[in-house]
Design a protein around this nucleic acid. Structure first.
Length: 825
DNA sequence: AGCACGCCGACT
DNA sequence: GTCGGCGTGCTC
């Protein structure tokens, strides 16, 4: 026996794990596995490790090796968290692709991919020693800390910072440790807490008829308890254990009676883990039939899938794409497997989700930012164990642990919200989904009424399949569309505040017919800026190079970039004049002006400001749906995925603000947005109306929207993109260079651009000053890389990576921040 | 990210 | 001179 043991000892292996930390770090780190944990470590499991002097994190095992690291002594891992891996092999491959394609760190991807509940980090806590040394001489500040610790046992670093009113607290803490007055502990907070509910079960003894009868007689003297028992028996027909709160609600017996029964051992209580997700157990909706056009499109998609991995479904608004998706999903999961259905974030809180949920019942999970940490972990686990077959989600849903994907649907594929800009990974979820499908050897449907230029180009060049659905479902008519020139109306003095006489007439008619109206204005706030009529002074943000926006509800001036706000001004701080004028106008201002014109009409506003609270948006939408409000004014939000039966008029207050945006995609975006807004009018029997107000009423994009001419828009755009060498004819990479000092930044950006130019030539443009030159006290310059389609993109990327690394290694540029954004659109 | 170390200005 | 802010480097 002893011999065998020593033999084992000889042969016992020492394992090392390469782990990904949920931090933006350039490399992964290697830890040593204590022998007792050898059996438990596995790729894809989380481990608890100490990183640096104190901090404890959960890291993810990426690899297991036997060679010890050459140049340093590895720390031991503290524990293995998971019973089973939480990250699949395919996910790691997916992460690798994101890392290399979007030029970010693995830790960035891990942070984005894992729900917060699966990442734990420690907090440093100060604790008073049980026995303080006899002669303790403390400084004033140290005494302050010890006094607080006497009262509340423990303090966080932040609390110390607040208590002392200074940022540098470590020297003081270390001094206290040195004097043996305190010690520090690392408190690891388990973020995910399963929800526990009490369940009541009848003691099996009373299963016997005889015993139960006897119990009834005993309880006759305690009517409340008898009530509780009866309530239990009524509820217990299908399940033996009844949730305590349900029993209390239905029985009406009260806590005391229940407790008495539990004390008498008639009922037993048990805490059970329950799901937070209120999955509907509704029966599936009756089977609907696809129209002939839909059925044809369905068949066509199937045929195209035979030799294409991606099919673009170009279906005009109200063509019934959703039904088509449902049929595709149904078919995909018929023989097991999973489906990912991506939607833009805002569309996820609306009707389309309800419709699909009703259809697929408890097979479906929804994943987006409105869910809290705990709920997200539960969804993650249900995808991992396969109990969710269909997932509806926003862009981050591409990171869920799918086992067996059979189909990916990306609805509204042109939506810019599929791109994450901040923080890294700056990924485009639609493109990532195409790669994800490739990993799972499966297919993708990209759906849109107004496809992005690049997707349509891919379809045109046969990279993607193309299926067109251009018949409105159920014979819904196209709305009547009209353009009104604001310039013309102003000249003829026919404007009433921001509204042309045409729009006012349309609104009056709609209101008389008891129909509803949606007004679209692409700008939040009340007046865009305040400006002094005497000297031209306009209040600016202290942290950013932007004028502040006046919000009437708060009475304050707000910065939309950093959140800074200050009280409004009545007197010009520069010249003392009282002639402060408001320039420009936002949703809030429109709301106010409109209420003067239609004082008896209920008006609601849907924008970022009015939907800050959790249910704010839902409330506004349902009020409008229930016709409690007649006019809904909104930003982009009103255009996305909202269907209202009674809306007969859509008004666009000012189309020019969209068209004048300085970006090569401004026209494409404007077309998409205006077409989408227009699509909200008159969805059922009745023909709706769209009224677009613009200064430049003969703009080609507006004409194309009115004519519903996507093809012409596409051709015009392609001609321009070709001429100026923009996507899809070239690829773009942006490099944002940031620094607190404008001079340092200028030199740095120029230096970086020069060394890139030396290697990549005229593919490098800039550095240029972006629209907003300073945000949150950081000055910004932008370098643009334009790469022709034929170039080896991976080579360019590796040059880029190396150059930036060298650049950041230079002494003067150490504190310069560089951010790479691949496909920045 | 977050902590240590080292440099430098301001304040007793 | 000392304290605290701030930039810089490092974490297996």
């Amino acid at each position: 026996m002893q011999f065998a043991d020593s033999l084992n000892f000889q042969e016992r292996e020492t394992l090392f794990v390469e782990v990904i930390l949920p931090l933006s770090l350039a490399i992964n780190y290697t830890y040593r596995v204590p022998f007792e944990l050898n059996e438990k470590v596995e790729i894809g499991k989380r481990v608890v490790i100490q990183f640096g002097k104190h901090k404890i994190y959960t890291a993810l095992v990426k690899n297991i090796v036997q060679q010890p690291p050459e140049f340093y002594e590895a720390k031991y891992i503290i524990d293995v968290v998971d019973e089973y891996p939480v990250i699949t092999e395919k996910q790691f491959q997916f992460w690798d692709w994101i890392t290399s394609y979007y030029l970010c760190n693995e830790g960035d991807v891990m942070s984005a991919a894992l729900p917060t509940g699966l990442k734990l980090a420690s907090e440093t806590i100060l604790v008073l020693k049980d026995e303080l040394p006899d002669e303790l001489i403390l400084t004033e500040k140290e005494t302050l800390i010890v006094e607080v610790l006497h009262k509340q046992q423990r303090m966080s670093i932040d609390e110390v910072v607040e208590l002392l009113g200074q940022k540098t607290v470590y020297p003081i803490i270390n001094s206290l440790i040195g004097k043996e007055a305190i010690y520090i502990a690392e408190e690891v907070i388990e973020k995910y807490k399963p929800l526990l509910k009490s369940f009541i079960t009848l003691n099996p003894f009373y299963k016997e008829e005889e015993n139960l009868k006897q119990l009834f007689t005993v309880l006759e003297k305690a009517p409340k308890q008898l009530d509780a028992l009866l309530a239990y028996l009524k509820l217990a027909k299908t399940e033996v254990s009844i949730p305590k709160n349900q029993l209390l609600e239905e029985g009406g017996s009260g806590q005391a009676a229940l407790k008495a029964l539990i004390d008498k051992d008639i009922f037993t209580v048990e805490k059970r883990q329950v799901s937070r997700l209120n999955d509907s157990h509704d029966e599936f909706e009756v089977n609907f039939k696809l129209s002939i056009a839909q059925q044809n499109a369905f068949n066509e998609i199937e045929t195209q899938f035979e030799n294409k991995d991606v099919v673009l479904l170009h279906g005009i608004t109200a063509s019934g794409k959703t039904q088509l998706y449902i049929k595709l999903i149904e078919k995909a999961i018929a023989s097991g497997g999973q489906v990912l259905f991506l939607l833009p974030e805002i569309a996820l809180t609306t009707q389309i989700v309800e419709r699909i949920k009703r259809y697929f019942g408890d097979k479906i999970g929804v994943y987006h930012s409105k869910f809290n940490d705990n709920e997200r972990v539960e969804i993650w686990n249900k995808v991992l164990n396969g109990s969710y077959q269909v997932v509806l989600g926003a862009r981050s849903a591409v990171f869920l642990p799918f086992k067996d994907l059979k189909l990916i649907v990306v609805d509204e594929e042109h939506e810019s919200s599929y791109k994450q800009h901040e923080p890294a990974p700056r990924y485009q979820a639609r493109d990532a989904a195409v790669f994800l499908a490739h990993l799972h050897q499966t297919k993708v449907v990209l759906g849109s009424a107004t496809p992005s230029i690049e997707s349509f180009y891919n379809a045109e060049t046969d990279k993607y399949g193309l299926v067109v659905l251009n018949e409105r479902f159920g014979g819904v008519q196209l709305p009547i569309q009209e353009v009104v020139s604001i310039a013309e109306e102003t000249k003829r003095k026919k404007m009433t505040s921001y509204f042309t006489s045409v729009l006012i007439d349309d609104m009056s008619t709609a209101l008389e017919n008891k129909e509803q109206i949606i007004l679209f204005q692409n700008r939040r706030g009340y007046a865009t800026i305040l400006i002094c009529a005497t000297c031209g002074y306009a209040p600016k943000c202290v942290n950013c190079d932007v004028s502040l926006t006046f919000h009437k509800t708060s009475g304050k001036l707000h910065c939309h970039y950093c959140g800074y706000h200050q009280n409004s001004i009545n007197i010009c701080p520069a010249c003392g004049s009282v002639h402060i004028e408001q320039k420009g106008f936002g949703t809030e201002r429109i709301e106010e002006e409109l209420s003067l014109i239609f004082p008896e009409v209920k008006i609601a506003r849907l924008d970022l400001d009015s939907t800050r609270t959790k249910n704010g948006m839902q409330q506004i939408i349902s009020d409008f749906q229930d016709k409690k409000t007649q006019i809904l004014i909104g930003t982009q939000m009103v255009a996305k995925g909202l269907d209202f039966d009674n809306v007969s008029l859509i008004g666009v207050i000012n189309a020019d603000t969209l068209l004048n945006y300085p970006d090569f995609r401004a026209f494409e975006r404007s077309y998409q947005l205006l077409a989408q807004v227009a699509g909200r009018a008159g969805r059922r029997e009745k023909q709706g109306k769209v009224c677009i107000q613009a200064y430049d009423d003969s703009h080609r994009i507006i004409k194309q929207v009115i004519a519903n001419d996507y093809a012409q828009m596409y051709m015009d755009e392609m001609a321009e993109r070709k001429q100026f060498n923009y996507p899809p004819f070239a690829r773009l990479i942006f490099i944002n260079v940031k620094h607190k000092d404008a001079n340092v930044l200028n030199v740095a950006a120029q230096t970086l651009a020069n060394s890139l130019k030396a290697q990549l030539g005229n593919r490098i443009l800039g550095p240029e000053q972006p629209l907003v030159a300073r945000i949150r006290n950081y000055y910004i310059k932008q370098i643009i890389i334009k790469i022709e389609k034929s170039a080896a993109i991976q080579k360019v990327k590796s040059v880029l990576k190396d150059t930036i690394k060298d650049f950041n290694a230079q002494k003067d540029f150490k504190s310069v921040i560089t951010q790479i954004d691949v496909d920045p659109y």
